[in-house]
């Protein structure tokens, strides 16, 4: 997937005194880290602050990375804990949206969705908008599984739970996502699933 040296080679070189190479790791994982942060943070600014904090923490503790797990798994563990600390610090709630909030969010997203005639039937938009209606934990789990290239075992490590628990939670999260799409993007689902 990536060309050039692998993560472990870069880490060894950074530890041997080439800190500028760390930029390569930041470039590789910034989108993922930022996306997860955005699942928790109320806005892009806060998400960027969290993502930056994650990379700084990872850099400072790089010597503790033993290489017995993937660097991404180790990094995503830091993302997970940093997001939770951020919420605690800001005293934000991580409860899922209540019904009224969901309706409001969906209608806001849906109006944008319908306004754009070309992208109206875009599967990308529907999926990415529906995921914003999930709780941060559900959204994070789905993102880790589908975009983070992490196995159930690795997600278990990141979240500090058993792989079986991850499996059950993932099933539920996907079910909830499907329900959200069917409820709030009914027309689009018909088009997408039908087409």
């Amino acid at each position: 997937m990536y060309t050039g040296p692998n993560d472990n080679e870069i880490i060894s070189r950074v530890l041997r005194g080439e800190p500028s190479l760390y930029a390569e790791l930041v470039k590789r994982y910034q989108k993922f880290v930022f996306t997860i942060a955005l699942r928790y943070a109320p806005n892009r600014e806060d998400a960027e602050e969290i993502a930056q904090d994650v990379f700084v923490k990872a850099y400072r503790n790089l010597a503790d990375f033993r290489g017995d797990a993937k660097f991404s798994t180790w990094l995503y563990t830091i993302v997970s804990t940093t997001c939770i600390s951020f919420l605690r610090k800001k005293k934000l709630d991580i409860r899922p949206l209540d019904h009224e909030q969901v309706l409001e969010t969906a209608s806001r997203l849906d109006s944008g969705f319908k306004a754009n005639t070309i992208e109206q039937k875009s599967k990308v938009q529907m999926v990415n908008r529906a995921i914003h209606l999930l709780s941060p934990d559900d959204a994070k789990l789905i993102t880790l599984f589908y975009k983070g290239e992490q196995s159930l075992e690795e997600i278990g490590q990141i979240m500090g739970v058993e792989p079986n628990t991850v499996k059950v939670r993932l099933h539920r999260a996907r079910q909830r996502l499907k329900d959200k799409m069917e409820t709030y993007f009914k027309e689009e689902v018909k088009d997408v699933m039908g087409g």
Partner: peptide, 29 residues
Amino acid sequence: LMQQHLELDEPSMRFTQNVMEEIGKYKIT
């Protein structure tokens, strides 16, 4: 749908630069 159409968000253009400037203040423990 999840596999093919779930997209990752992108941080600002200066993100990597900001991180590198920030880590310049620290040493690896």
